[in-house]
Computed example of a mutant assay.
Amino acid sequence: MKIVASVLSVLRPVRVLVVAFTCALLLFSNAFPAFAMDSYQSNPTEGTTQLLDIQRKTDEAAKEPPQGLKKVQKESNQGLNEVQGAADIDKQKRPENSQGATSVEENVKNLLEKVTGK
């Protein structure tokens, strides 16, 4: 019993340091939860214009009878599709802008070559 009591008395400063470190870690993790997201600060009104235009078109379509084939084709040919038009066309992946991309199969082959060393 005396040995256990002496070992516990020796470990007391270590326990205090572990508790202090844990408290500091909890404090900083709660104080700065999104600290890593400082690379891009978005403007709150950034996407509002496109959304308002889409909402306006939606409201107009709800008030009118169903559209005919000619009108739908005309709207669809103006961009990616009838609803989006050409919005965010530069952000979407298409065959024209993804010529240098590697396929999933190539990625797996490269990974397997790295793992096996061949």
Rank of each mutant, 00 (worst) to 15 (best):
L11W: 09
I89M: 05
I89C: 03
V7I: 09
Q55L: 10
A31S: 15
K109C: 05
I89P: 00
E106S: 04
V7T: 15
K70V: 08
L17W: 02
P13H: 09
Y40A: 15
Q78H: 14
L69Q: 08
C23R: 02
E106A: 06
Q50Y: 09
S6Y: 12
A34C: 06
K71G: 03
Q50G: 01
V14F: 01
E105G: 07
T58G: 07
R56L: 07
E64Y: 12
D53Q: 15
P13Y: 06
V7D: 08
T22M: 15
V7P: 00
F21R: 07
K2Q: 08
A20F: 00
P44A: 09
V14N: 00
S98K: 01
A34D: 11
S9A: 15
T116D: 08
L11N: 05
Q78E: 10
K2I: 06
D59T: 15
V108P: 00
D59I: 13
L80K: 09
S6T: 07
E75I: 15
T49P: 03
G85R: 00
N30K: 00
A34K: 11
E82L: 15
L11A: 10
G117E: 01
E60F: 14
L8N: 04
Q50C: 03
K74F: 13
K71Q: 14
A61G: 01
E82W: 10
A36E: 15
K70T: 05
P95T: 02
Q41Y: 07
L11K: 07
Q84C: 13
N43P: 00
A87C: 04
F35S: 09
Q99E: 09
K114F: 14
L52C: 02
N107F: 11
L27E: 10
I89V: 13
T45E: 11
T49F: 08
R12C: 11
A36D: 11
E64R: 09
A36P: 03
E60V: 11
F35V: 13
Q50W: 06
V18E: 03
A101N: 04
E64A: 14
M37A: 13
P44M: 08
S29G: 04
V19S: 13
A87L: 01
E60P: 01
